[in-house]
Design a protein around this nucleic acid. Structure first.
Lengths: 226, 226
DNA sequence: ATCAAAAGTTGATAATTATCAACTTTTGAT
DNA sequence: ATCAAAAGTTGATAATTATCAACTTTTGAT
């Protein structure tokens, strides 16, 4: 059975894992940073110098291939944290990160993060669990890429992006992503993406507002995925 | 630059992370089990009851889609350990596991593993690092599936499988895998796989011994990957 | 509100890959 | 060593997807 939970990361709050004391340490050490749309936070191959927690806006994690084409691995939203994994593994970043729109993040430098990680059992445990859960998500996504058609991948991506662009205050979810990024997320050519979106629009499964997308009938998208 | 290290898991010994005392506990609790070719160790969706360490033979980790098609996520060899991740996350297995040939494993039941994990700092650290490293590998593999052609994926898979089937005693690496499994590993149709293998054989990049494959010119395979 | 640049869309076509059916080779039990 | 079953291979063709070029719509600065 198809279950969307297997394809996108649950938002798990970083600060929920901290005690009051750890939280005040975090607040003391963390820095608020704003990034303009398209700003590159770090590049593939570089070493992580800290952990980012998204406060506002979306940040894409992607890999570039030698032809310059991009493959978007994930899009982080408010509350998500990232950049800690290569830090723990002492590996270079396998991906690059860039702001999709104007964003605000909390930035916790490496030393402060590691200090928290080492002293807080709940944080370490939380991170192991987060890592393990993310694992299942990646494995599932990988299977989708190898076995699903472009249309199926687009249907799934619309459902995933609905979650990413969900806003607690608003009932209607407006997916605001440009076609190049969307195509990179799906792993297809922009033109193929657009043709399929048109098809979904003709079927009244989605509607558009300018270049923004609203999913009208998520159930019908589920139906494409068996 | 292309680096094979980014696409296959380094073999990291489980027992290396244990002290002499922990090792004797491990040996006391672990059980030796033999599995016949094609035996299914566990199925996707089930809950892990312990950790497996491969002693002999190969074990494939795969996902089945509703049409019955298989997608092989990874092939574990001697020394590799698996099954611990869903155990830590308390998640169901995202994949199934089956013996490719007749295999021998050490099996450490859940309770014993968790007890070791909780008491041994080095093991916990080792597992976090292993997990983090595996992460990069999956992300890289995912990118390959979305951006590479079938021929490129086969070239890469031949290189990965050369590592998997490498035997320290023998210089020549003999890849012994059936075409269905190979195709599932690459994410293509068996016929497409075979046609590309023929092409590589005509170019004298690989040779075959019955249904077994020997890579003669790994450099030429690298060349397909830029 | 205007308008040039950027982003998105469509059509035509080529390239890639999957599917089906027939055939050949290999494997492994006796 | 034999031989049936299983596995592997090839050819023909259909389906899917990418690419290129022309065109249309949207965006955002003034």
């Amino acid at each position: 059975m198809f279950n969307l939970e297997n394809y996108h990361l649950k938002s798990s709050s970083f600060s929920d894992a901290l005690s009051a004391r750890e939280l005040s340490y975090f607040k003391e050490k963390a820095e608020r940073i704003e990034f303009k749309k398209k700003h590159i936070l770090f590049k593939e191959g570089s070493f992580s110098k800290g952990v980012y927690i998204v406060r506002k806006g979306k940040i894409k994690i992607y890999k570039s291939n030698p032809n310059g084409a991009e493959s978007i691995v994930y899009i982080y939203k408010k509350g998500d944290y990232f950049g800690y994994r290569p830090l723990l593994a002492e590996d270079p970043n396998p991906v690059s990160a860039a702001a999709i729109d104007n964003t605000v993040v909390s930035y916790l430098p490496k030393e402060a993060f590691l200090s928290l990680f080492n002293r807080s059992d709940t944080l370490a445990k939380k991170i192991v669990i987060t890592l393990s859960q993310e694992f299942s998500v990646w494995i599932n996504k990988m299977t989708v890429f190898t076995q699903f058609s472009v249309k199926e991948r687009i249907a799934l991506s619309l459902l995933i992006l609905s979650k990413v662009y969900q806003n607690n205050e608003e009932k209607k979810v407006i997916i605001s992503i440009n076609r190049d990024d969307f195509a990179s997320f799906v792993g297809t050519a922009k033109e193929s993406l657009v043709r399929n979106l048109r098809h979904f629009k003709d079927e009244k499964i989605i509607s558009t507002q300018g270049t923004k997308i609203v999913v009208m009938k998520p159930d019908q998208l589920h139906a494409y995925l068996l």
